[in-house]
Simulated assay, not measured.
Amino acid sequence: MPTINPYLNFQGNTEEAFNFYKSIFGGDFIGGISRFKDTPEAEKLSGNELDKIMHIALPFGDANMLMATDALESMNQKVKQGNNIYLCISADSKQQADDFFAGLATGGDVELDMHEAFWGDYFGMLKDKFGIKWMISFTDR
């Protein structure tokens, strides 16, 4: 069964925020902390951005996660109310991911087409016609 989880954007203080959330909700970060210095795009980033958080996830309950990233100014990303959260759907199959993406993209704006991401997921991002931001992913791991 697919799941939907919140994906938060922070302007450089994701690690601080998630240590705060961890102190309240408990648990351990799923898969550790991924930093921008460990991505294929690292050479394009400024020195102060390399240690920023590319991805972090904290379990919440049995099947949910609170996830986040740092928005990078070098990528022209500015956090403001309305772009600080995505709903992230984890699909059960690649076909289901494509179907969800195509449906939600109807009348909306595609930010990143579905593709095989460097971390191994099949992944895409969009804003639907109502202004809601979505991440769609599928992993066969």
Rank of each mutant, 00 (worst) to 15 (best):
E16Q: 11
G124V: 09
L87P: 02
S137L: 11
P40S: 08
S137I: 03
E73K: 14
K37Q: 08
M1L: 11
I89D: 01
D99S: 15
Q77C: 05
G26N: 07
K127D: 03
S90A: 13
S74Y: 06
M75H: 14
G61K: 00
K127I: 15
A68K: 05
L8R: 05
M67T: 15
V110A: 04
W134H: 02
Q81P: 13
M67C: 13
Y21P: 03
P2I: 13
A105V: 08
C88Q: 09
N9P: 04
S46V: 13
L45H: 10
L112T: 13
D28G: 12
Y86Q: 05
I132K: 00
Q95K: 14
F118A: 05
G61W: 08
D98G: 02
A91G: 09
N76E: 14
G131P: 15
P59Y: 03
N48R: 06
I33A: 11
S137G: 14
A105D: 07
P6E: 07
A17K: 02
L72R: 02
D128T: 12
D70L: 06
I24K: 03
N84W: 06
L126F: 12
I56Q: 03
G120W: 06
F36A: 04
G107V: 10
N19P: 00
D38V: 01
Q77W: 01
T3Y: 11
I24R: 00
M65V: 13
N48M: 06
G32L: 08
Y86R: 00
E49G: 09
L87K: 00
T14C: 15
N9H: 11
M135K: 06
G26Y: 04
G61A: 08
F101K: 01
E111A: 09
N19A: 09
F118M: 04
N13K: 14
F10S: 07
A68I: 05
I136S: 05
F100G: 03
E49V: 09
M75F: 15
A57M: 11
A17F: 01
Y21L: 09
E49T: 12
A71K: 06
T39C: 02
F20A: 14
F123G: 03
G32W: 08
K52E: 00
I136P: 02
Y86I: 01
P40D: 08
D92I: 09
Y7V: 04
S74L: 03
S90W: 00
L87N: 07
D51A: 07
H115L: 10
A63D: 15
P6I: 10
L72C: 06
M1P: 08
F20E: 08
S23A: 15
K133Y: 11
F18L: 03
L112A: 07
I4R: 02
G120H: 09
